[in-house]
């Protein structure tokens, strides 16, 4: 058996403690440790810290975690159902695709703008509402659509669902396309960055935020 003459580095000592060295390498390390008080002392140091970590007891999850997860899962299901209804209404494929989603919303906005330019009336909260001149027009897409403006942001409402497309705040790092419940911490944090959204939140609006890295879309009802 050969003996390691060089001192054992930290990686090797740590792997030795974990039994993660190949047999031959472990034997060499043992041989060296038997003759090197310095490396033995460092090995003792690794054992001490590992021992203290191992004595850290596992924590029991809080009893309310199950209930909280269940409640939020129910919200995800409800939001999913909401988005599915929107997809069906817009007669497009899955809104999971950001391109399809953006196309659907832009199309909806274009049709709405075309169909209702003549029917503007002021709403009581200072927003702008578009009445329905001919509900059956535009292939039924705009059957019960209204547009409102809150603090300069235009939102489209269709059958109780609000849609808003806007650019991401520059401070938000782009992330993969993601659907967030507006009630989730992350969804709420995202919405709270937009002062106008406070009105929706305070008004008890439920919905989802669809985010695709370049833009995010709030869907509310």
């Amino acid at each position: 058996m050969s003996t390691l003459t060089a001192h054992l580095d930290d990686d090797l000592l740590s792997a030795y403690v974990d039994g993660e060295l190949p047999e031959r390498r472990a034997a060499e390390a043992e041989d060296h440790l038997a003759h090197c008080p310095g490396c033995q002392a460092r090995l003792d140091g690794v054992h001490r810290v590992v021992g203290r970590l191992h004595r850290l007891e596992r924590a029991a999850p809080p009893p309310l975690l199950a209930e909280r997860v269940a409640r939020h899962v129910a919200l995800v299901d409800r939001d999913r159902s909401l988005v599915e209804r929107l997809e069906a209404r817009l007669n497009v494929g899955s809104l999971d695709s950001p391109i399809v989603l953006a196309f659907a919303v832009v199309l909806a906005l274009a049709v709405i703008a075309y169909a209702f330019t003549a029917a503007v009336e002021r709403s009581s909260d200072g927003g702008t509402r578009f009445g329905l001149a001919e509900p059956e027009s535009a292939a039924g897409l705009v059957a019960s659509v209204e547009v409102t403006e809150i603090a300069g942001h235009e939102l489209v409402r269709q059958e109780g669902v609000w849609i808003e497309v806007m650019a991401l705040d520059a401070s938000w790092e782009p992330v993969a396309h993601e659907r967030l419940a507006a009630e989730s911490d992350e969804g709420r944090a995202l919405l709270e960055r937009q002062p106008w959204a406070a009105e929706l939140i305070e008004g008890g609006a439920a919905g989802v935020v669809l985010r695709d890295g370049e833009r995010w879309v709030g869907v509310y009802r």
């Binding site: 975690l65 997860v69 939020h72 995800v76 989730s184 911490d185």
Partner: peptide
């Protein structure tokens, strides 16, 4: 940790 665990399970669910 409770918040992180809850959010993790929502990700898992999705």
């Amino acid at each position: 940790a409770a918040d992180l665990a809850q959010e993790t399970f929502l990700r898992i669910y999705r």
